[in-house]
Write a protein that binds this DNA or RNA. Structure first.
Lengths: 199, 199
DNA sequence: TGAAATCCTTATCTTTTGTTAACGTTTTCA
DNA sequence: TGAAAACGTTAACAAAAGATAAGGATTTCA
């Protein structure tokens, strides 16, 4: 995808949070940069501060932790979604997990430095503050649902709901990553799938 | 606690997010209101839109869902912390859980309506946008840690860590609520406690 | 293209958790 | 103050999940 098309996709993708008129867009876009990730390439690694907030125009990534030498996948992001090691990016602290491309991935990026400059730019500040607030609020709602699922649902219930609401993820993501995401082992997910098929 | 003392506590409590000079404070405080909750009184109930964002100056509350007729406690907030049915408050959608006072509780409150007015007030807008953004970012970091705990830790590990990092909660909150919070049943928590004591 | 890596399933065994119920203690509140 | 409610522990059994290993299919990539 060429940069112009990526910018268009980005503009459309963030319209749920904030819309720029053409004059604002002219000021805004020079603060953006672009990058590609090849399959298995890391966007973020443990111990490093994450300097970019991204919008994925194509591809998919997984977020994972390493515990006792084992990778545990906690989340995914796909095209037309935002991606960042959010906590590290915001707090400027070393990241505690990894983000890795599952496919060829294209990104539109905002560096932390540029973000700060925009927050000091008289014509952008208010809109960028709002953008940041709405993004954060959006993610809070996602997280709230996720925690609620862990509190109130069994692994099997979480699987059944995921299978209903995001069937396509099973075509795109290896099943053992999805198992981690659901909070169980791959073996256990395989059993649950067999069990729920028979019913 | 009298209102002046509550306001002082509030100002101090939000200083981690935003600080007001005295002139700004004068403009800001008329948008606030006050309320008390007696023990077991509900601040929020399922099905109603939550109209207030609160700061707790005294007391404690629990957040719980009802599933199959059973109450499942998912979170707590204490004095000097913020409290709201955040998702409902932000999205103006019916709330999906309950918030109930565990003790006599005192609140400083911002109504959604007043918040919107402040966001349109030329002298407050930027600071309030920032306040909202920083609060949301703060909660995202909390949620991120919580989800990571569910993904990467066993119930026993979650208990041991909670016992280390927030021992006082066990003196203040009934144990079966804490069990829900950890994602397990009260019986299971009782077993874990016995098990880890013996080791 | 062919060896290596990845992936899913299945089996076996162990460990943990859920469920239900009972019991004694403490707290609540009319 | 006294009956009722709330609370934590324990027991017994069932259900589910974790750990480990093996086997076969598919994919990857040099």
């Amino acid at each position: 995808m060429d940069k112009q098309a990526q910018l268009e996709a980005f503009r459309k993708g963030i319209a749920q949070f904030v819309t720029f008129n053409d004059a604002e867009w002219e000021i805004f876009t020079p603060y953006l940069s672009f990058s590609n990730l090849s399959k298995k390439e890391h966007f973020a690694v443990e111990g490093k501060v994450c300097d970019y907030m991204c919008f994925i125009t194509r591809g998919a990534v997984r977020y994972y932790h390493i515990k006792d030498g084992q990778e545990i996948t906690g989340y995914f992001s796909f095209e037309n979604e935002l991606m960042s090691a959010y906590k590290s990016f915001l707090k400027r602290t070393p990241n505690t997990n990894y983000i890795q491309a599952l496919e060829e991935t294209e990104l539109v990026m905002i560096s932390h430095q540029n973000l700060q400059q925009m927050l000091n730019h008289p014509l952008l500040a208010l809109k960028i503050e709002r953008f940041g607030r709405l993004i954060a609020e959006y993610y809070i709602c996602c997280y709230e649902d996720r925690v609620t699922a862990f509190i109130t649902q069994s692994p099997e219930e979480r699987y059944v709901i995921l299978e209903k609401t995001a069937k396509d993820i099973f075509q795109r993501i290896p099943q053992h990553f999805i198992a981690n995401f659901l909070g169980i082992t791959p073996v256990s997910l395989s059993r649950i799938r067999k069990r729920t098929l028979l019913q």
